[in-house]
Protein backbone atom coordinates (compact mmCIF):
# COMPACT_ATOMS: atom_id res chain seq x y z
CA UNK A 1 0.00 0.00 0.00
CA UNK A 2 2.85 2.35 0.85
CA UNK A 3 4.28 1.70 -2.56
CA UNK A 4 1.02 2.58 -4.19
CA UNK A 5 0.87 5.85 -2.30
CA UNK A 6 4.44 6.64 -3.27
CA UNK A 7 3.71 5.94 -6.90
CA UNK A 8 0.54 7.99 -6.79
CA UNK A 9 2.53 10.87 -5.32
CA UNK A 10 5.13 10.47 -8.04
CA UNK A 11 2.52 10.48 -10.78
CA UNK A 12 0.91 13.50 -9.22
CA UNK A 13 4.20 15.40 -9.06
CA UNK A 14 4.86 14.51 -12.66
CA UNK A 15 1.51 15.87 -13.73
CA UNK A 16 1.86 19.10 -11.79
CA UNK A 17 5.37 19.97 -12.80
CA UNK A 18 4.89 22.65 -15.50
CA UNK A 19 8.48 22.54 -16.55
CA UNK A 20 10.90 20.04 -15.13
CA UNK A 21 14.29 20.59 -16.65
CA UNK A 22 15.95 18.21 -14.18
CA UNK A 23 13.47 15.46 -14.90
CA UNK A 24 15.43 12.86 -16.84
CA UNK A 25 12.49 11.00 -18.20
CA UNK A 26 8.97 11.82 -19.22
CA UNK A 27 7.73 8.37 -18.40
CA UNK A 28 7.71 6.30 -15.23
CA UNK A 29 6.61 2.75 -14.62
CA UNK A 30 6.28 0.61 -11.54
CA UNK A 31 4.67 -2.54 -10.23
CA UNK A 32 2.37 -3.20 -7.33
CA UNK A 33 5.09 -5.54 -6.02
CA UNK A 34 8.79 -5.64 -6.85
CA UNK A 35 9.53 -8.90 -5.08
CA UNK A 36 7.76 -12.17 -5.53
CA UNK A 37 8.52 -15.13 -3.32
CA UNK A 38 8.18 -18.57 -4.84
CA UNK A 39 7.12 -20.47 -1.75
CA UNK A 40 5.73 -23.95 -1.44
CA UNK A 41 2.22 -22.60 -1.97
CA UNK A 42 3.14 -20.56 -5.07
CA UNK A 43 0.70 -21.23 -7.88
CA UNK A 44 1.52 -18.35 -10.17
CA UNK A 45 0.35 -14.80 -9.60
CA UNK A 46 -1.00 -11.63 -11.19
CA UNK A 47 0.93 -8.39 -11.19
CA UNK A 48 -0.31 -4.89 -11.81
CA UNK A 49 1.94 -2.63 -13.83
CA UNK A 50 1.20 1.05 -13.88
CA UNK A 51 2.86 4.24 -14.80
CA UNK A 52 2.52 7.76 -15.98
CA UNK A 53 3.71 9.69 -18.95
CA UNK A 54 3.76 13.38 -19.68
CA UNK A 55 2.92 13.36 -23.34
CA UNK A 56 4.55 15.86 -25.63
CA UNK A 57 3.23 16.93 -29.00
CA UNK A 58 5.33 14.22 -30.53
CA UNK A 59 3.99 11.40 -28.38
CA UNK A 60 1.91 8.89 -30.27
CA UNK A 61 1.95 5.90 -27.97
CA UNK A 62 3.72 3.63 -25.54
CA UNK A 63 5.43 0.29 -25.80
CA UNK A 64 6.13 -1.81 -22.71
CA UNK A 65 8.21 -4.99 -22.55
CA UNK A 66 8.66 -7.45 -19.72
CA UNK A 67 11.64 -9.76 -20.02
CA UNK A 68 12.52 -12.71 -17.80
CA UNK A 69 16.08 -13.68 -16.89
CA UNK A 70 18.04 -15.08 -19.86
CA UNK A 71 18.37 -18.87 -20.01
CA UNK A 72 19.72 -21.45 -22.41
CA UNK A 73 16.72 -23.05 -24.05
CA UNK A 74 16.85 -26.54 -25.52
CA UNK A 75 14.34 -26.91 -28.35
CA UNK A 76 13.74 -30.41 -29.69
CA UNK A 77 11.97 -31.50 -32.82
CA UNK A 78 10.27 -34.85 -33.13
CA UNK A 79 10.55 -36.95 -36.22
CA UNK A 80 9.28 -40.32 -37.28
CA UNK A 81 11.62 -43.26 -37.10
CA UNK A 82 10.41 -46.84 -37.56
CA UNK A 83 6.86 -45.62 -37.04
CA UNK A 84 7.62 -44.00 -33.69
CA UNK A 85 8.09 -40.35 -32.81
CA UNK A 86 11.56 -39.66 -31.47
CA UNK A 87 13.28 -36.38 -30.70
CA UNK A 88 15.46 -36.41 -33.77
CA UNK A 89 16.85 -32.88 -33.85
CA UNK A 90 17.60 -30.27 -31.25
CA UNK A 91 19.07 -26.84 -30.93
CA UNK A 92 20.21 -24.81 -27.94
CA UNK A 93 19.18 -21.16 -28.08
CA UNK A 94 21.64 -19.40 -25.86
CA UNK A 95 20.56 -16.74 -23.39
CA UNK A 96 17.03 -16.10 -24.60
CA UNK A 97 14.45 -14.42 -22.39
CA UNK A 98 12.75 -17.07 -20.27
CA UNK A 99 9.65 -14.88 -20.19
CA UNK A 100 8.53 -12.19 -22.60
CA UNK A 101 5.47 -10.05 -23.03
CA UNK A 102 4.80 -6.84 -24.90
CA UNK A 103 2.11 -4.28 -24.26
CA UNK A 104 1.37 -1.42 -26.64
CA UNK A 105 -1.15 1.36 -26.66
CA UNK A 106 -3.75 1.08 -29.43
CA UNK A 107 -2.43 2.12 -32.81
CA UNK A 108 1.13 0.94 -32.24
CA UNK A 109 1.84 -1.77 -34.75
CA UNK A 110 4.62 -4.04 -33.63
CA UNK A 111 5.28 -7.72 -33.94
CA UNK A 112 6.18 -8.40 -30.32
CA UNK A 113 8.50 -11.23 -31.15
CA UNK A 114 10.59 -9.19 -33.53
CA UNK A 115 12.16 -7.31 -30.64
CA UNK A 116 12.79 -10.33 -28.44
CA UNK A 117 15.72 -11.81 -30.30
CA UNK A 118 17.36 -8.47 -30.84
CA UNK A 119 19.74 -6.31 -28.88
CA UNK A 120 18.27 -3.72 -26.57
CA UNK A 121 16.07 -1.02 -27.95
CA UNK A 122 17.79 2.32 -27.48
CA UNK A 123 16.36 5.82 -27.71
CA UNK A 124 16.03 6.91 -31.32
CA UNK A 125 15.54 3.33 -32.47
CA UNK A 126 12.94 3.06 -35.20
CA UNK A 127 10.58 0.15 -34.64
CA UNK A 128 9.99 -0.28 -38.36
CA UNK A 129 13.60 -1.38 -38.68
CA UNK A 130 12.87 -4.11 -36.18
CA UNK A 131 10.30 -5.73 -38.40
CA UNK A 132 12.94 -6.87 -40.83
CA UNK A 133 14.08 -9.71 -38.63
CA UNK A 134 13.18 -13.11 -39.97
CA UNK A 135 12.95 -15.72 -37.25
CA UNK A 136 14.46 -19.07 -38.02
CA UNK A 137 12.60 -22.31 -37.44
CA UNK A 138 14.08 -22.86 -33.97
CA UNK A 139 13.42 -19.35 -32.74
CA UNK A 140 9.81 -19.65 -33.89
CA UNK A 141 9.56 -23.07 -32.21
CA UNK A 142 10.90 -21.55 -29.01
CA UNK A 143 8.21 -18.88 -29.08
CA UNK A 144 5.45 -21.39 -29.79
CA UNK A 145 6.48 -23.87 -27.08
CA UNK A 146 7.08 -21.12 -24.52
CA UNK A 147 3.70 -19.61 -25.38
CA UNK A 148 2.11 -23.00 -24.73
CA UNK A 149 3.71 -22.84 -21.27
CA UNK A 150 2.26 -19.32 -20.81
CA UNK A 151 5.75 -17.86 -20.58
CA UNK A 152 5.51 -15.81 -23.76
CA UNK A 153 2.70 -14.01 -25.48
CA UNK A 154 3.61 -13.51 -29.11
CA UNK A 155 1.15 -10.76 -29.94
CA UNK A 156 1.35 -7.36 -28.38
CA UNK A 157 -1.30 -6.88 -25.71
CA UNK A 158 -3.28 -3.73 -25.18
CA UNK A 159 -1.88 -1.19 -22.76
CA UNK A 160 -4.83 0.61 -21.23
CA UNK A 161 -4.88 4.34 -20.87
CA UNK A 162 -6.54 5.20 -17.59
CA UNK A 163 -6.46 8.89 -18.46
CA UNK A 164 -4.41 11.00 -20.84
CA UNK A 165 -1.34 10.38 -18.75
CA UNK A 166 -1.84 7.23 -16.71
CA UNK A 167 -1.63 3.73 -18.02
CA UNK A 168 -1.74 0.29 -16.56
CA UNK A 169 -1.60 -3.37 -17.49
CA UNK A 170 -1.95 -6.61 -15.66
CA UNK A 171 0.61 -9.35 -16.01
CA UNK A 172 0.10 -13.05 -15.58
CA UNK A 173 3.03 -14.96 -14.05
CA UNK A 174 2.45 -18.72 -14.24
CA UNK A 175 3.91 -21.04 -11.60
CA UNK A 176 6.64 -22.28 -13.91
CA UNK A 177 8.42 -18.91 -14.23
CA UNK A 178 12.17 -18.99 -13.93
CA UNK A 179 13.26 -17.26 -10.73
CA UNK A 180 15.53 -14.29 -11.27
CA UNK A 181 15.50 -10.65 -12.26
CA UNK A 182 12.72 -9.47 -14.57
CA UNK A 183 13.07 -6.22 -16.44
CA UNK A 184 10.13 -3.98 -17.22
CA UNK A 185 10.72 -1.20 -19.76
CA UNK A 186 8.40 1.44 -21.10
CA UNK A 187 9.22 3.34 -24.26
CA UNK A 188 7.52 6.53 -25.27
CA UNK A 189 7.05 6.58 -29.02
CA UNK A 190 6.75 9.23 -31.64
CA UNK A 191 5.23 7.37 -34.58
CA UNK A 192 7.73 4.51 -34.63
CA UNK A 193 10.70 6.28 -33.08
CA UNK A 194 11.56 5.87 -29.41
CA UNK A 195 11.79 9.19 -27.60
CA UNK A 196 12.54 8.10 -24.08
CA UNK A 197 12.53 4.91 -21.99
CA UNK A 198 12.11 3.97 -18.37
CA UNK A 199 13.07 0.74 -16.63
CA UNK A 200 12.11 -1.02 -13.45
CA UNK A 201 12.84 -4.48 -12.10
CA UNK A 202 10.98 -7.35 -10.58
CA UNK A 203 12.76 -9.92 -8.48
CA UNK A 204 11.34 -13.45 -8.36
CA UNK A 205 13.08 -15.71 -5.90
CA UNK A 206 12.59 -19.03 -4.19
CA UNK A 207 11.73 -18.63 -0.53
CA UNK A 208 11.18 -20.62 2.62
CA UNK A 209 10.92 -24.40 2.52
CA UNK A 210 10.87 -24.38 -1.27
CA UNK A 211 14.22 -22.57 -1.41
CA UNK A 212 15.73 -24.94 1.17
CA UNK A 213 14.56 -28.09 -0.58
CA UNK A 214 15.70 -26.83 -3.97
CA UNK A 215 19.13 -25.87 -2.64
CA UNK A 216 19.49 -29.24 -0.92
CA UNK A 217 18.44 -31.17 -4.05
CA UNK A 218 20.87 -29.28 -6.26
CA UNK A 219 23.84 -28.55 -3.98
CA UNK A 220 23.79 -31.58 -1.68
CA UNK A 221 22.01 -34.28 -3.67
CA UNK A 222 23.37 -37.07 -1.45
CA UNK A 223 21.75 -35.57 1.65
CA UNK A 224 18.59 -34.87 -0.30
CA UNK A 225 18.48 -38.48 -1.53
CA UNK A 226 18.90 -39.73 2.03
CA UNK A 227 16.13 -37.40 3.18
CA UNK A 228 13.77 -38.92 0.59
CA UNK A 229 14.69 -42.44 1.73
CA UNK A 230 14.17 -41.53 5.39
CA UNK A 231 10.81 -39.95 4.52
CA UNK A 232 9.70 -43.21 2.89
CA UNK A 233 10.88 -45.28 5.88
CA UNK A 234 9.08 -43.12 8.44
CA UNK A 235 5.87 -42.83 6.43
CA UNK A 236 5.96 -46.54 5.59
CA UNK A 237 6.07 -47.52 9.27
CA UNK A 238 3.58 -44.78 10.12
CA UNK A 239 1.16 -46.02 7.47
CA UNK A 240 1.45 -49.59 8.76
CA UNK A 241 0.49 -48.38 12.25
CA UNK A 242 -2.45 -46.45 10.89
CA UNK A 243 -3.67 -49.32 8.74
CA UNK A 244 -3.57 -51.80 11.62
CA UNK A 245 -6.22 -49.84 13.50
Amino acid sequence: MQRLIAIAALCFALLLAPVAPTWASNVVVDLDRNDIDVTITFGGTQLLLFGAVRPTDETTGLLMTIEGPPVDAMVRRKGRLLGLWFNLESRVLEQVSSYFQVFATPGIDIAATSIMFQPDIEPDTRLSERHLLQLDEWQQAYLDTAEAKELIVQDAQVLDWKSKTLFRASLNLPSNVTPGRYRVRVHELSSDRIIVSSTTYLEIRRAGLNANLFALAVDKPAYYGLLCVVLAVISGFGAARLLRR
Binding site: A222, Y224, C228, S235
Partner: peptide
Protein backbone atom coordinates in the same frame (compact mmCIF):
# COMPACT_ATOMS: atom_id res chain seq x y z
CA UNK B 1 16.81 -46.07 -6.87
CA UNK B 2 15.44 -43.13 -4.86
CA UNK B 3 18.90 -42.25 -3.62
CA UNK B 4 20.62 -42.66 -6.98
CA UNK B 5 17.93 -40.77 -8.93
CA UNK B 6 18.13 -37.90 -6.45
CA UNK B 7 21.91 -37.98 -6.51
CA UNK B 8 22.64 -38.49 -10.21
CA UNK B 9 19.60 -37.11 -12.01
CA UNK B 10 17.96 -34.66 -9.55
CA UNK B 11 14.75 -36.43 -10.40
CA UNK B 12 13.01 -37.03 -7.07
CA UNK B 13 10.55 -34.40 -5.89
CA UNK B 14 10.00 -34.79 -2.18
CA UNK B 15 6.78 -32.74 -2.09
CA UNK B 16 5.33 -34.90 -4.81
CA UNK B 17 6.35 -37.98 -2.79
CA UNK B 18 4.60 -36.68 0.32
CA UNK B 19 1.34 -36.14 -1.58
CA UNK B 20 1.47 -39.57 -3.21
CA UNK B 21 2.27 -41.31 0.06
CA UNK B 22 -0.66 -39.63 1.84
CA UNK B 23 -3.02 -40.71 -0.93
CA UNK B 24 -1.56 -44.21 -0.98
CA UNK B 25 -2.25 -44.79 2.72
Amino acid sequence: VTFLQAYANQSVDIMLSVLLIIGGV
